[in-house]
Amino acid sequence: MSTLAIDLDAVRNAAGSVADPELPVVTLGMLGMVHDVKVEDGRVVIELLPTFSGCPATDIMGLDVRAAVGDQVEGIGEIGIRWLFQPVWSTDRITAEGHDQLRSFGIAPPTGGGPVSTLERPNHARSLPVAGAGAPTDRDPDAPPTADVRCPYCDSQDATEDSPFGPTPCRAAWYCQSCSQPFERFKPL
């Protein structure tokens, strides 16, 4: 197999186009999970960043990436999936398009600060800046959790948190006082 024949952009696109099994409106690309694609010893290796550690979809995502790249990229041989702990994934990596898609699905995107204002972040937290253009990068991780949460249905800020624990590890349960609609919020991480 000639490694030169493999189009790594096509590999990245195929991996990035895989839908989140639990939130199919967003792709791994929109979530900022595809770190790198490379050729090592004649095989393609796709480096992915895991999101929430408790996410049961992680193993499925790896299988789906393998299948998508195998189907869509010509001349692909053996495919390796590598989950990395560095750089550290954070919700800052979700693209602006990802935010729009989450909102359309009834989920407030992870804007407006982290969960606890009293804890300092480790001073060498290794999050990388988001790769895609137009991604939100102005989040203050130490801001109060209620800042800038808008109802995904009516855009009101008159919303309250019912529970920081929702149906999945990445989502909290919220309620909009303005349109009387319960909604979920993607937790900032």
């Binding site: 480790p122 937290a125 991480l189």
Partner: peptide
């Protein structure tokens, strides 16, 4: 680093 954010 990652788990610290989740544990918050």
């Amino acid at each position: 680093t990652k788990l610290l954010r989740e544990e918050r």
